[in-house]
């Protein structure tokens, strides 16, 4: 589907968002948000709960309609043709369970058929390290496995843009690192990734650029190192000494990098 026309000639921006607004009653969940996402990057949207991250992403995914503003993905206006957008993106939603009574390879094939595609379910499951669970029912999966399956399902249509909404929330450190490796490998495969998270170390590890949202607005946008430099330039310094290792490093060191059977 990457053969879709790209309107933008100057820079290769796969997503262009201009002045997006979404109100719920008198609450402005998204209040004039604008940004671009370059092709092939991992773009992070950060912010505290209720900052408007999920609403912004759901508008881009064609699941909610903005009150005003435009969102273009690969040259397609989301509000005009949400179906066309949905067919070229992959989506992983927060707190979604799949059908309990289906086996993993059946779930992957089922979602493939919704995009009129015949997918090699076992190969996709192998990509997210679920080969051994291929014939198990969804309900037997652990939290980390469920998250990885939802990534596999999001990849069935070989998407141009992959949206991941808090993909590591609730995972233990091993499962989280494993998910990070998976996300990097998907980017290396050529997809653009839009990621929301409220884990800063996750954003620092994965994202090429981040937008920091608060109260429905983007308060800063840039690469993680730029933003850190910017802050340090104001004379900021941490009140306590930063060790070259932190407690998570200790934890991983003691309990191993390997992914646990059940994570």
């Amino acid at each position: 589907m990457s053969s879709e026309p790209v309107e933008d000639n100057q820079t290769d921006d796969v997503i262009r968002v201009e002045n997006l607004v979404k109100r719920y009653d008198d609450l402005k969940a998204v209040n004039g948000v604008s940004f671009e996402v370059h092709r092939g990057e991992i773009f992070g949207i950060l912010g505290p709960n209720g900052a408007g991250k999920t609403t912004t992403v759901e508008i881009l995914e064609g699941m909610r309609v903005a009150d005003s503003g435009t969102a273009m993905i690969n040259g397609i206006d989301v509000s005009r043709d949400p179906r066309a957008v949905k067919s070229i993106i992959g989506v992983q939603l927060q707190s979604v369970q799949f059908f309990d009574q289906l086996k993993l390879h059946e779930l992957v094939s089922l979602f493939g058929s919704l995009y009129s595609r015949k997918v090699n379910a076992r190969e996709l499951l192998a990509r997210v390290d679920l080969t051994e669970k291929s014939d198990s029912l969804y309900k037997t999966l652990s939290g980390g496995q469920k998250q990885r399956l939802s990534v596999a399902v999001a990849l069935v249509n070989d998407p141009v843009v992959l949206f991941l909404d808090e993909p590591t929330t609730g995972l233990d450190p091993q499962a989280r690192r494993h998910m990070w490796e998976l996300i990097s490998s998907i980017r290396d495969g050529g997809a653009t990734i839009v990621l929301t998270t409220h884990y800063m170390e996750e954003a620092e590890e994965l994202c090429d650029r981040v937008a920091i949202m608060d109260s429905g607005e983007i308060v800063r946008l840039g690469s993680p190192s730029e933003l850190i430099e910017e802050l340090l330039a104001t004379g900021f310094s941490k009140s306590r000494t930063v060790h070259p290792a932190d407690l998570e490093d200790v934890f991983i060191h003691l309990t191993g990098h390997g992914l646990r059977e059940d994570s």
């Binding site: 699941m63 179906r83 067919s87 989506v91 939603l93 979604v96 979602f111 995009y115």
Partner: peptide, 14 residues
């Protein structure tokens, strides 16, 4: 309740 209807809404089929 599981959100799977919402997930289907994210596909072109709906």
């Amino acid at each position: 309740a599981q959100g799977v209807l919402r997930r289907l809404f994210a596909t072109p089929i709906g």
